[in-house]
Design a protein around this nucleic acid. Structure first.
Lengths: 150, 150
DNA sequence: CTAGAAACCACTTTTTCCCACTTGTGCACA
DNA sequence: TGTGCACAAGTGGGAAAAAGTGGTTTCTAG
């Protein structure tokens, strides 16, 4: 199964195209033949999520099936389904990021592509470093995390 | 089965016509031969719902059959059944949005068409972004949603 | 008879695909 | 260990095709 690790600095050109780094591209090709899905994340640190299609399908079904009489569920559905975009790489291994997602994550020229195991995250470089510097953990640590030992 | 994803910025012209984006049009053609139904939604965020006819039929029957001694049910029926409008696309792939629905969702020139799996939502662009930017995620998160891992 | 909607047609803009150039990296050989 | 060569990766632009837009005319219903 696919396993994305590490981060890469990449550039988006004026047309919104971005070249997937060759190493990541390889993993994507064998995970899903290059068929990927981009979407928005739903938490307050805005970035774009990049899923291999099979992984996305699992998630999609779960989200579609949530009963949506409650507001937070509708919000999640509108963000995640409403921003999802199936993508294929062009002959040069590039993908085109839709304007809505560029807006969501504030993507301009300089980006960071961050491996997260089953998926990748795509950040505005500026925001990524901001986030790294700011982040701290004053919130309650959930029990399943407390049990970890790094 | 139809599976609408992603959002598209579209314009309504002075006559109330709006061009369905080509990709969405394709999905609609194969889902229902272009026969769609527009109607109002019933929650507080007002938008127009766009269903392929077969999907609409399933929903219509469910809503018609609800026992309607309670006020919220009557409200739902009046809004959803009372605003439903069957539509066909013209030769250029455009539809005409009825004035009542334009009013319901405050549709003027700039709109967003948002994929939501089995259906599409049509928003005033202004309202869509307003709603997205509302950070209020502090409402009760239902347990089935809490268990998700994006 | 009038107003609004539908069909049609022509024009403009956007998107997509492809090709060529530049940059970077790794390897071999001096 | 340094230099250069060769191949792979990344970047940019342009042309063809597709999509979207706007207007005019015809039809239909009130």
């Amino acid at each position: 199964m696919s396993n994305f690790l590490g981060s890469h600095a990449i550039n988006m050109d004026a047309k919104g195209r971005l070249a997937i780094p060759a190493k990541v591209r390889e993993i994507l090709m064998q995970a899903c033949g290059g068929r990927i899905v981009l979407t928005a994340n739903a938490d307050e640190e805005r970035c774009v999520l990049v899923y291999p299609e099979p992984e996305w399908e699992i998630l999609r079904v779960k989200i579609e099936d949530l009963p949506n009489m409650k507001k937070p569920v509708r919000r999640l559905q509108r963000l995640v389904l409403g921003n999802a975009a199936p993508m294929e790489m062009d002959s040069a291994g590039r993908i085109l990021v839709p304007p809505t997602l560029r807006r969501h994550a504030n993507l301009e020229k300089k980006l960071m592509l961050v491996g997260q195991g089953k998926k990748l995250e795509l950040w505005s470089e500026e925001r990524w470093f901001e986030w790294l510097d700011e982040t701290s953990c004053d919130e309650d640590i959930p029990p399943e995390m407390e049990a970890l030992s790094l």
